[in-house]
Design a binder for these strands. Structure first.
Length: 804
DNA sequence: TGTGGAACA
């Protein structure tokens, strides 16, 4: 009883409580509404509950960018509502669905809703949808925006609420015909912001910000003392290495200072500065890949007279809230992915944050009481050098998967789709080109049967294409394992100490398959399976248990999808006319359904290809756009497609330096000969038998290295892709087709290319007042981004040259 | 001497 009263008191103390009537009126009167309120206003937990209480029988969906948020919020709301989780209130995330037929309020990740939309584009399960944390602008959120706008046109009664933290939300409102904006005041404490007096440009600060954070922390420790307890410190840096380094460095500096203090206190009678002692400090790193997020150390309260200093990545800006932070030290930088559509590769770069991000970081100091934010950059840099907002993710990543799901949603003319922020023309074209070359869409931009097969699988398009092929030639079970392994982070664990590295390499060697890394991954998984998915086995053999476990979940999800679908197929096959293209594949006749024992047996028969060959055949279809061919005289490879298509590369970049295209076999790859690995770290020779290989992705090591590569035994395996490359190169038929097939608004594409203006594009671009100027500004920014990517690559290459 | 930031289906 007292529990319930306490809950009630807490609820009524939230700022949103006084706005209940106003909000309900607004939702009654408007079908689309933007609500802004800082974290702590109660909007995420309270508003959806108000809605299901106020509107009887309304089915409400609330999306979150992150799984933990969906889970924890749903749990709390169920408790507050007084029901069991999964009854009236529940959540759905990948691998975990707690909802039931009685659930009326469902929290989920935005990816889940997007996935549901591919089955049911009208989203008829919901009467009201709330997109929460819209300011984070994940790709999924952005696509949902465009999708909901279309859905609303067909279901005018659907209610949509956009919830966001920042004040700069006119963009959201404009997108939905200038719908009303409702503001809930936040409940935060004032944060004093101190800028650095160093007026260097951000570019120069980049080299020295780690050292400066240490200085600043030392300053806070010795000078900034608040009454009572001192208040914890949060430092924003960019990456794991940097953070570990900073933690160590701070410890060293503090030790030195201690020594100094002891010496000076023995000579002089009193020191004005507060003395600092290492045993009264907790210095903690915080980044996502930290083995176990030490809950108590980071989130728990510190002992008396003890101070926490946390060095964190951006994870502390959005995903994780640490209590009792009083001081924030903001380096002004972040690591961001940048995608280069001309090569289809991306690079991870340290770039300045945006003004919005800086404000958010500063806000972390004022959650429990008034605080101070130290910025390591000048006010001028903040005002003039930083972008207002972080570039939305959708403009920074490859869009192949996104475009394919849009096609599945029935959006044939992707160029005419209304994006909240339009991705670059080159990125869209690159995505369409890749889909065409994979055989997922035809020259008119229409989805093929292959494409329909691909969207079933919630994995990277390269992998889903491989799975479609694997089903066709009868090695689906194995391909699913490999696809799952490729969907998780590095399963091979490599210790830091050199001696242990040798042991790890030896352990890994045991599973390496001469044909390459794909079969190797299968070997690893099957070995682990044979050991009953043992954790100890992972440790003994240097594999990452967490990642393998995730791979296992993904594998079973993929198998479920296959099972469900094959039942469906059996049901419909008899009555529908079979207009599927006749396959010319030699192995097509046998074993279409293919369970593992069958295909293993068939692999044994002398005339058929081996299982390893079947698998690589399947994957070489999926990786048709990731082909590389060996250089005739040198131990390197060339990106095959880029060399075929590069003349058509974007005019904006103009950067097609041939050095880009030189790819190397990773020393960690099964294709990299053992004796070389023991000779030199980045050896020179690759097996002579290698001619063609396919690879999963390229990473920038000391040079461009192919991560997960396998042999192609016969160039016929990739003949289909090569034929499509030739077709594509000859006529660009598909681009014309995309335009003529799309309805009128397909013209938007011409606008973007020519810089002209039509009525249709004026509609799609509403919100930017001066399209011509906005466009060129965009282009300039994009060029700058591409140049940064290019610079990073050059640096990597220079490092390599210095090394040899 | 070093590749990865953080998230999701």
């Amino acid at each position: 009883m007292s529990d319930r009263n306490e809950i009630k008191n807490q609820q009524e103390a939230l700022p949103i409580f006084d706005h209940r009537d106003g909000l309900m009126d607004a939702i009654h009167n408007h079908n689309v509404l933007v609500i802004i309120g800082e974290t702590g206003s109660g909007k995420t937990t309270q508003l959806p509950r108000y809605v299901i209480e106020e509107f009887k029988n309304t089915r409400v969906g609330v999306t979150q960018p992150r799984r933990i948020a969906a889970i924890s919020v749903a749990k709390r709301v169920a408790e507050e509502y007084g029901c069991r989780l999964g009854d009236m209130v529940g959540y759905t995330i990948r691998f975990d669905d707690t909802t039931s037929s009685r659930t009326r309020l469902k929290y989920m990740t935005d990816g889940v809703l997007l996935r549901e939309a591919t089955m049911d584009p009208l989203l008829e399960k919901y009467d009201l949808l709330i997109i929460d944390e819209a300011h984070e602008r994940t790709v999924e959120t952005d696509v949902l925006f465009g999708l909901l706008k279309r859905t609303k046109a067909k279901r005018p009664n659907l209610k949509i609420i956009i919830m966001s933290a920042t004040l700069n939300v006119t963009k959201f409102s404009d997108f939905f015909d200038e719908c009303p904006i409702y503001e809930i005041p936040g409940r935060t404490y004032p944060v004093e912001i101190l800028h650095s007096r160093d007026i260097s440009k951000l570019g120069t600060l980049k080299s020295g910000y780690v050292a400066k954070t240490i200085d600043t922390v030392m300053h806070i420790l010795s000078k900034e003392v608040r009454s009572g307890d001192a208040g914890d410190i949060l430092v924003f840096l960019t990456g794991q290495n940097e953070i570990e380094q900073a933690c160590q460095e701070l410890k060293n500096v503090v030790l030195e200072k201690e020594k100094e203090d002891r010496e000076s206190s023995s000579t002089s009678s009193s020191s004005r500065a507060k003395s600092v002692s290492l045993d009264r400090l907790q210095i903690l790193p915080l980044y996502a890949s930290l083995e176990l997020l030490d809950q108590n150390a980071i989130f728990g309260s510190t002992p008396r007279n003890c101070r926490k200093i946390i060095f964190a990545t951006n994870i502390a800006q959005t995903s994780v809230t640490i209590p009792n932070i009083c001081f924030v030290v903001d380096s002004g930088f972040v690591k961001q992915k940048m995608y280069d559509p001309t090569t289809g590769m991306d690079a991870l770069l340290v770039v300045p944050i945006s003004k919005a991000a800086a404000t958010q970081r500063a806000g972390r100091a004022g959650r429990t009481r008034a605080g101070i934010c130290f910025r390591l950059y000048s006010r001028e840099s903040f005002e003039t050098e930083m972008d207002d907002e972080t570039v939305p993710e959708i403009k920074r990543t490859g869009l192949t998967g996104t475009v394919l799901s849009l096609k599945q949603l029935g959006i044939l003319d992707v160029n005419g789709f209304e994006f909240l922020d339009r991705p670059g023309e080159e990125e869209l074209s690159a995505a369409l080109r890749e889909l065409y070359l994979m055989g997922a869409i035809d020259q008119y931009g229409r989805m093929t049967d292959v494409g329909h097969g691909m969207v079933m699988y919630p994995v990277n398009p390269l992998l889903s294409r491989s799975l479609v092929e694997a089903e066709k030639i009868g090695c689906l079970d194995q391909a699913i394992v490999i696809a799952a392994m490729l969907s998780v982070e590095e399963p091979f664990y490599m210790p830091r100490k050199e001696k242990e590295q040798e042991a790890a390499n030896l352990a890994h060697d045991h599973y390496r398959h001469p044909s390459g890394d794909h079969v190797t991954l299968l070997n690893v998984f099957e070995a682990w399976q044979d050991e009953n998915y043992s954790k100890d086995w992972c440790h003994e053999n240097y594999f990452n248990y967490r990642h393998l476990r995730l791979a296992r979940s993904i594998r079973s999800q993929l198998r479920d999808i296959v099972d469900r679908n094959s039942h469906h197929k059996k049901d419909t096959q008899k009555c529908s006319s079979n207009d599927q293209q006749e396959s010319q594949h030699p192995h097509d006749r046998k074993n279409l359904g293919g369970n593992s024992s069958d295909s293993k047996q068939s692999a044994k028969t002398s005339s058929s290809p081996s299982l390893s060959q079947l698998i690589r055949q399947a994957f070489s279809q999926g990786y048709g756009i990731h082909l590389s061919k060996k250089h005739q005289h040198r131990p390197m490879f060339y990106h095959y497609l880029a060399s075929m298509l590069s003349p058509s590369a974007g005019a904006a970049s103009g950067t097609t330096s041939s050095s880009l295209l030189a790819l190397h076999v990773s020393p960690l790859s099964a294709l990299y000969l053992d004796e070389e690995r023991s000779l030199t770290k980045y050896g020179r020779k690759v097996s002579r038998s290698l001619e063609w290989i396919f690879y999963h992705e390229v990473v920038y090591h000391v040079k461009a290295v192919m991560r997960y590569a396998s042999k192609i035994d016969d160039v016929k395996w990739v003949q289909d892709t090569m034929d499509r490359v030739k077709n594509f190169d000859r006529g660009n038929v598909w681009l014309n087709g995309e335009r003529s097939e799309g309805q009128l608004d397909g013209m938007a594409r011409d606008v973007a290319v020519d810089g002209g203006e039509t009525e249709d594009s004026a509609n799609t671009k509403r919100g930017s007042e001066n399209p011509a100027e906005g466009e060129s500004d965009e282009q300039a920014k994009k060029r700058a981004r591409l140049e940064m990517v290019e610079a990073a690559r050059k640096r990597a290459l220079v490092r390599r040259q210095n090394q040899s």
